[in-house]
């Protein structure tokens, strides 16, 4: 029932394959009404290497989920990709034909959603739902599909899969449902797994188990992760690299450990200072004053300037561009150098 070591390695991609898996270039997502465009995601660029784990952090309305949905081609009605490209192994998903895209979703790219109860089909047994992708894309028979569903359920740590394969989503707990979602997403062995807050709806103990399982299973299958969350501690646990988004733009990115230990952008620092840290119990919380700008009414300069304690006149007039410094840190802030030196001082 449990897949053997050799079975897994047969399907693993060639480790020498070092080409970029996902390359997002100046992506803009928004609403278009006649000639007016309302931009939700405003010029986002990042790359994901095969088998790496990339986190996108931001508050609600920052555009992190929209970026993810644009990659999956699941933008909500009315919104669309306005410009830019999303290249998956060289194929631009924005201009690709729907049939090409459909062929990729499942065997190449898969997605996990925040709320498994609404993402799963309530009137089909979970085993059938896990087997659906492999049967369609890999041409498995009904029997083979059932066997694969059992294997995947075992891999995701669902106890007693033989009984649970016939269960309906409502018969499972939140943690088990999320495991079913992960089993479904990884059943076709995708190279890229998109996760939209996959553990936000789960209890801490279950969250810990699910993150550990997701991490090891992705490593086994050879999938890269793009992980969207609002929780910096979860990114710290899960992702090697991260990008911080604010008002539709990436404001800072880099190695997770470096960015969190020594943030250069005032917003990243604000996020860290406003969240209670279990390891620093006495520290006072410093909230970020004000609110994020509304999507329709973003300021012309740096979107964070109205809330930023370090803002100067320059910040209100021009939007800072994301620049990479000599020490491989990427920040979009005119005062980044200053805030960086102040922190290290």
């Amino acid at each position: 029932m449990i897949m053997t070591e050799t079975d897994l390695h047969v399907l693993e991609p060639d480790p020498s394959d070092r080409t970029l898996l996902l390359e997002i270039n100046d992506l803009r997502v928004g609403l278009r009404r006649g000639r007016t465009e309302t931009t939700i995601v405003d010029g986002v660029s990042f790359d994901v290497d095969p088998r790496t784990r990339f986190g996108i952090v931001g508050e609600s309305g920052s555009g992190k989920s929209m970026t993810l949905r644009a990659i999956a081609g699941l933008l909500p009605g009315g919104t669309e990709v306005l410009s830019g490209s999303i290249r998956y192994r060289g194929t631009d998903l924005v201009t690709a034909k729907p049939s090409v895209r459909r062929g990729l979703m499942g065997p190449e790219i898969a997605m996990i959603f925040q709320e498994p109860m609404t993402a799963l089909n309530p009137v089909r047994p979970v085993g059938d739902q896990i087997a659906e992708g492999p049967r369609r894309h890999l041409g498995l028979s009904k029997k083979e599909g059932r066997a694969l569903a059992l294997e995947m359920m075992g891999h995701t740590g669902i106890p007693d899969p033989v009984r649970r394969v016939r269960a309906y989503p409502h018969e499972l707990s939140g943690g088990l449902r999320q495991r079913v979602m992960i089993a479904m997403a990884l059943a076709c062995r995708p190279k890229l797994l998109l996760c939209d807050e996959p553990t936000t709806a789960l209890d801490v103990t279950v969250q810990h188990q699910v993150l550990d399982m997701l991490e090891s299973l992705c490593a086994e299958v050879g999938a890269a992760l793009v992980f969207v969350t609002h929780d910096l501690a979860v990114v710290n646990k899960t992702c090697s690299d991260l990008a911080v988004m604010y008002a539709g733009r990436i404001v800072e990115s880099g190695r997770t450990s470096e960015v969190l230990a020594n943030p250069r952008h005032p917003y990243t620092r604000g996020l860290l200072d406003s969240a209670p840290d279990f390891d620093q119990p006495g520290r006072a919380l410093v909230p970020i004053p004000g609110l994020p700008p509304s999507i329709a009414n973003r300021p012309p300069g740096c979107a964070f300037a109205p809330r930023c304690s370090r803002a100067v006149a320059e910040c209100d007039s021009a939007a800072p561009i994301l620049t990479t410094s000599t020490d491989h840190r990427t920040v979009a802030c005119f005062r980044a150098e200053a805030s960086g030196s102040e922190i290290s001082a």
Partner: peptide, 21 residues
């Protein structure tokens, strides 16, 4: 306590995280 996602070093105490639900 062992299950809390931490900002610091993430290793250690993982064996205390309960199995199952």
């Amino acid at each position: 306590i062992a299950s809390i996602p931490r900002m610091g070093d993430t290793s250690g105490a993982a064996d205390l995280v309960p199995e199952g639900e």
